[in-house]
Design a binder for these strands. Structure first.
Lengths: 336, 336
DNA sequence: TTGAAAGCGCTAACAG
DNA sequence: CTGTTAGCGCTTTCAA
């Protein structure tokens, strides 16, 4: 009577019942965006009715690449990482690649990932974000043909996207001195966790240099080294502002820390920017809501560029290593 | 030089190197008794040298070795999604599971993912965040044995983590009226994109109810429906505040929108909370920096709970469906 | 947007 | 014993 088999249905059964080719059925499972909505629904309905289950083994055989892109990132300790990740996700979302997120919170974990991601050739591509690694790691990645793009770090064998941190510091110095400030302060994560890179130090150095151009010295007691987390930032901001000779303007190496400074300043009854000017660095989205003047590093775009670079490399469209430097720009709002 | 591929060797490679047909190699593996001892040893040796692993097995192993958990989430339009994701990533990071992020930005995409994630069964578990789906989708997921936990939505077959949105609205009403406010306003994404859920509406309804308890009516012109993005929020906040009879207190269904209101209010020269009280909803981390009073929904923890629930289910430790309701609490800061 | 057709890596029937 | 060859169920060009 009904020849709908007790047997497990195959893609051929689905196709026949739908009056379509197996190619189309395969597409609704693997690249649904390529299939007409009506067709898709018809196929889907039959799939559900039949209880069709693709044979994993057959798939494994037929599948070429792994269609997987990994992102190695510090754990979301700072919104900056997230905004870059968003840029990456945005681009990857337009493709058929899966986005696998590997978060790092220690040196050991970073090292473990670097090894296993290379060895278990399971990734078509890898984006390494704000994390340092040595030549051995790089060579291993290359030996195992993991296409890699790095963000906020540079390494001769891989394409990279970065910014000029020292340059950013100089911009800060010029901007703040241009506003007439002579007693400056700095807060930033100068001593980041061992597994992370330390752009804040470069920003600080650039800042000092920029100040030197104006013959201004940044006294040590106005240089505040603080981890990026909320508690530390708040505490550090307090120390910085409660000094006898408090700075009239502060350059924070991260927007989130600038926000901490502002919070503390307000609690102290200081008016911003009259009593204290605050300049951030990042260009976070929330900075706008706070009216924070900041040096924008286009985080979102950085992520997008990295993803584009990687995709181009995977597709073979571009093989050569290239280093992209994303320009900084200052966004003037109300805190300076 | 050496053409020994970086690629995984296939049965063809083994056969070629052994000077035999693939059939013989296949026999060595599947029916060794049919193969001549000498031949067999030759083949075995080459298999070992090459490190040959049948592909299906390789895949099975890869999948068993690296277990995978997927998160289906709206694209990072709101920081709230990100904070929940962070909670998830935190938990998953302590395990051997990979975290795969699938971002949704349209109804079609959501549907596509729901289908392919179920059919390809490449996931050990799935967390569906703030996204609605129907019973057909649910049954398919179940039929294909994808362990699933949902956040901010409820569905009888799956465990879920959610909050009491209407209850939150009531809390807001009581808190604000308790502070003496009688002319209230509301802003929220009452009409979210079609692929998303709409907790803001529940919050609004709860808010209205809570006000009704105090015989206060929320006039339509003080109910502001606005998408969550920055531009819309700012614009809507303007409209809300520029009314003749402006509210003395505003309940925003999302912290990010509360921040928009504050920004606009300040630009208008209003003092907060004297001229205008603002109460947010979410408990974002940045809310603290802004001194925003808000109804905290413990986003980070929500993510952690969902991940724990899923892990327990995957490990078989807990099979029964359970619905967790995360309690709300109000965090008093400086905007009310 | 779709279909035809050529694989993918492997097994097994059939010859020899 | 071993090789030839025809699939297995699925994916992926390539053209239409």
């Amino acid at each position: 009577m009904n020849d709908a088999r007790e047997e497990n249905p195959t893609i051929y059964d689905v196709a026949r019942l739908a009056g379509l080719s197996i190619a189309t059925v395969s597409r609704v499972i693997n690249s649904p965006e390529q299939v007409n909505e009506v067709t898709k629904n018809k196929v889907l309905q039959i799939i559900d009715e039949l209880g069709y289950i693709p044979k994993a083994e057959a798939r494994a055989r037929a599948i070429r690449g792994t269609r997987r892109i990994g992102v190695l990132t510090p754990f979301f300790t700072s919104p900056a990482f997230v905004e870059r990740l968003r840029g990456i996700a945005f681009v990857i979302g337009t493709t058929n690649f899966e986005l696998i997120v590997y978060t790092v919170d220690s040196k050991v974990r970073l090292q473990d990932y670097l090894v296993s991601l290379a060895l278990t050739r399971n990734l078509d591509g890898l984006i390494i974000m704000s994390l340092p690694f040595n030549e051995t790691d790089a060579k291993r990645l290359i030996a195992h043909q993991v296409k890699t793009v790095i963000i906020e770090y540079e390494q001769e064998f891989f394409s990279s996207v970065k910014i000029d941190n020292a340059g950013g510091g100089k911009i800060a110095a010029r901007y703040l001195t241009g506003k007439g400030h002579r007693r400056l302060g700095f807060i930033g994560e100068i001593n980041p966790p061992e597994y992370a890179i330390h752009p804040a130090l470069d920003r600080l150095n650039g800042f000092k240099e920029g100040l030197a151009e104006h013959h201004i010295l940044l006294p040590d007691e106005h240089i505040c080294s603080s981890p990026i987390d909320q508690e530390s930032s708040l505490k550090s901001a307090c120390e910085l502002l409660q000094q006898e000779q408090r700075p009239t303007a502060i350059f924070a190496a991260a927007d989130i820390q600038a926000m901490a400074v502002i919070k503390v300043a307000k609690e102290m009854g200081l008016n911003i920017p009259q009593d204290l000017a605050v300049l951030g660095f990042d260009g976070l989205e929330v900075a706008d809501y706070m009216g924070l003047t900041t040096i924008n590093q286009s985080l979102d775009e950085t992520g997008r560029i990295a993803a584009d670079l990687l995709l181009a490399q995977i597709s073979g469209a571009r093989q050569s290593v290239q280093h992209v430097s994303v320009p900084l720009n200052i966004i003037e709002r109300e805190t300076v």
